[in-house]
Design a protein around this nucleic acid. Structure first.
Length: 401
DNA sequence: CGAGATTCATGTGAAGTATACCTTTAGGCTTAA
DNA sequence: AAGCCTAAAGGTATACTTCACATGAATCTCGTA
């Protein structure tokens, strides 16, 4: 039986001791090279142990530099300590990732998400925002408690969220009687605080911590440590870890990426029934990660976005090396819409959609002035050519429906 | 020949609109006493 | 009379449109050397 064979080889060829250790959300017992930052975080959060409000904290650092991890770590420690002390401090720490589309990328949705995490519920739409605020306050005020809100990747959502949101949040404390809240903002963009209202800045940035990227050597150490517990002995070929860290170091020292690489390489080797993880597997894993990421983005994009993307792809193929501008894309997009009998969006909107693709990294677009011939975006596709067919498949399939 | 003025094609901000959805309220109907 | 359902009224968020103005370098214009 084929299925049995698959199962058999799965059990026999297990390379992993504990795969979770390589998963992104795993919080290890110690975190190398982040001692200073963790200390700082702990310093800021320590007052909760006496039931006092914490300063608001702002954390900067590129993806995969251990920001979330460190905060999570301190959080766990705090809870552990509180339990031991048993002094009646009621602490809640809620983590919200503002990047998640359709979940927490607007003021309303972040609040709604927060409320539902705290055990309340609000409808997805229809409520006036200030009423959502008051529901939120009611909910918190029900009992005496300290609440720490972690807003991860707020820079991603900040174009959609008015400055006033953070301001309101920081000011909420003055209206609260029973409870106090503290905010931890996490941002990938180092210039983020510069771009917001000075009043918000001063209240939000009471404390600031910067997480520098890991270098290749540090990455290696991290990987080594984790892989010892994650894999069985001797399944890693020499040089695999070095390769992983080198690849990830190239990507601004992204430890998460490095761990993903290792894990997926392991899965690939395992699935093939191989006994060792080799360097080729890393390369393959690298491709797979990139591929999955892009495919995932493309698949979850709304219909109109898909059309625009398809227009860009087709134009790129047709034009070869010629440059593509917004106007060209719009014309082509128009044709596609007519063919697919889908309503046509305005150029204004398409312009915004193109800008969003740029943000997502599916294309590179920059505004150029062509002098006498106007100003436009110069668009270049950023999807690797080996994925194009697959992406096109997804797009065209979606258009038929 | 060079400094300004012009120009184009679109970027970009603000305000308005359509849609989908929410709460509240008031009536109308049912039910049970 | 109490309880429940429904529809209407009043309101919002979101995605999109409409309107209007902003941009910035290639090109044009025209005075000057």
């Amino acid at each position: 039986m084929k299925v049995d064979k698959i199962f058999d080889s799965f059990i026999e060829n297990n390379l992993f001791k504990n795969k979770n250790i390589l998963q992104a959300n795993y919080t290890p017992e110690d975190i190398p090279h982040r001692d200073a930052q963790i200390e700082q975080v702990a310093n800021v959060l320590a007052p909760v142990l006496r039931g006092e409000r914490t300063s608001n904290l702002f954390i900067y650092g590129k993806t995969g530099t251990g920001k979330t991890l460190s905060v999570q770590y301190v959080r766990n420690k705090l809870f552990g300590r509180l339990e031991k002390m048993d002094n009646g401090v009621n602490l809640k720490i809620e983590y919200i990732n503002c990047k998640l589309k359709k979940v927490a990328d607007t003021e309303y949705r972040i609040l709604a998400e927060l409320i539902s995490k705290l055990g309340g519920s609000v409808p997805a739409t229809g409520l006036p925002t200030d009423q959502v605020y008051s529901r939120f306050i009611d909910l918190i005020e029900q009992e005496k408690q300290l609440i720490i809100i972690i807003l991860d990747e707020i820079d991603q959502a900040m174009q959609k969220i008015p400055d006033s949101f953070l301001y309101n949040l920081t000011r909420l404390n003055s209206e609260l009687v029973n409870s106090q809240i503290g905010i931890i903002g996490i941002s990938n963009d180092l210039t983020f605080l510069d771009s917001i209202d000075p009043r918000v800045r001063s209240s939000l940035g009471e404390e600031e911590i910067v997480f520098p990227p890991y270098n290749a050597i540090q990455l290696q150490e991290i990987l080594k440590k984790r892989s010892e517990d994650a894999f069985l002995k001797g399944v890693l070929q020499d040089g695999v870890i070095a390769k992983c860290s080198a690849l990830a170091a190239r990507e601004h020292g992204d430890a998460r990426r490095a761990l993903d690489l290792l894990r997926i390489a392991g899965e690939l080797a395992e699935r093939r029934g191989q006994k060792k993880i080799k360097i080729e597997h890393i390369d393959e894993a690298n491709e797979k990660i990139e591929k999955d990421k892009i495919i995932d983005i493309v698949e979850t994009e709304p219909k109109q976005f898909k059309l625009v993307l398809l227009a860009i792809i087709n134009l790129t193929e047709r034009r070869k090396l010629e440059k593509i501008f917004t106007g060209d894309v719009y014309d082509y997009y128009n044709g596609l819409c007519k063919k697919a009998k889908i309503e046509i969006l305005t150029q204004r909107r398409v312009s915004d959609i193109i800008a969003e693709f740029d943000m997502l990294g599916l294309i590179n677009a920059r505004v150029v002035s062509k002098g006498r011939y106007g100003r436009t975006r110069q668009i270049k596709l950023a999807i690797p050519s080996r994925l194009l067919e697959k992406v096109k498949g997804i797009l065209t399939e979606a258009l038929v429906l």
